[in-house]
């Protein structure tokens, strides 16, 4: 249990008659990248707001670094909300300083760390510009900097890549991976499943106010592994057999389901006898498939 940085236990949050979270549970290991997934309106943002102490749960508890979450932890957490922006009329440098100080940093410390990050991301020349002079992607970079500036133990990113072009997105992704390497724990919420596959170690799937799936990404993928295979042959006609069912066909590409795990070899032999196999591979369940499968149910 000691390597868990944050855990939410049976968290319930109601807004009037509407239940935003109903006994949600997550457990975020230290130095992991934890993907928080779920359809719109599932309760992800509410959970993130509870972790950030923007709002408090009606029941259940949140543990941070071994103790109950409290006001002292605000400076240990960095939050990049989905709905984010900056004061348009304020200068970039002043604004970054202000937000860093609000996180509890001293002026001197804040200015030192900001210099470091501005140089690292090559944005020093923006210091005296007003935010309204920046493009959306540029402003997003500033927001990223002010989120990580106080070196929190836990970072929470809600759709961090929205508004970035592919080059900047990869810069930010590298920075996120870097932060993890240095021991920061990251909660990561997104609808872009390919980035979840790419960087997350753990995931939780929240649907209709409940956690319906949680754990290391490999384990979850293994759980959803079924006996589906993709076969490509030299013909548009695949001979039927009682050993497998054809699930779908696209020209000479077939998705088949082996009826019994032990009959895999026989099935391959059967196809091999009747056709020339171009490729035969196991269909790995993608996070997207798992998402659609579990949420769609």
């Amino acid at each position: 249990m000691n390597d868990t940085l944050l855990s939410a236990e049976n968290v319930v949050k109601k807004y009037g008659d509407y239940t935003a979270l109903n006994k949600a549970n997550i457990s975020v290991p230290k130095s992991s990248i934890y993907g928080l997934l779920g359809p719109n309106g599932a309760g992800k943002t509410t959970l993130m707001r509870i972790i950030n102490q923007i709002t408090a749960p009606d029941s259940g508890r949140v543990l941070f670094d071994g103790g109950l979450l409290n006001k002292e932890h605000i400076k240990e957490i960095g939050y990049l909300p989905e709905e984010r922006g900056l004061y348009k009329k304020m200068k970039v440098g002043d604004q970054a300083l202000y937000l860093a100080q609000l996180k509890g940093m001293s002026y001197g410390e804040a200015i030192k760390k900001l210099r470091f990050w501005f140089e690292k991301l090559d944005i020093t020349s923006w210091w005296h510009k007003k935010v309204e002079e920046l493009s959306k992607g540029m402003a997003q970079k500033i927001q990223f900097v002010v989120t990580v500036i106080h070196q929190p133990k836990l970072l929470i990113f809600d759709e961090p890549f929205s508004g970035f072009d592919p080059i900047n997105a990869s810069i930010i992704r590298d920075e996120i991976l870097n932060l993890r390497k240095n021991g920061t724990t990251i909660i990561f919420s997104t609808h872009r499943m390919e980035s979840v596959e790419e960087i997350c170690d753990h995931i939780a799937l929240i649907n209709k106010s409940k956690t319906i799936l949680e754990g290391p990404i490999n384990k979850i993928k293994a759980e959803f592994q079924d006996e589906n295979y993709e076969v490509i042959i030299d013909s548009n006609q695949l001979r039927n057999s009682e050993r497998f069912d054809v699930l779908s066909q696209n020209k000479n590409k077939f998705e088949i389901k082996i009826n019994s795990k032990n009959e895999l070899k026989e099935a391959i032999d059967f196809i091999n006898q009747n056709h020339n196999i171009i490729s035969f591979k196991k269909n790995l369940a993608s996070i997207e498939d798992i998402f659609i499968k579990t949420v769609g149910k």
Partner: peptide, 18 residues
């Protein structure tokens, strides 16, 4: 209203109480 439309408010209240 400015803070709301600028979407900066959630960033700020993750540091201070509303």
């Amino acid at each position: 209203i400015e803070e709301k439309t600028n979407r900066i408010v959630e960033i700020i209240i993750s540091s201070v109480k509303p």
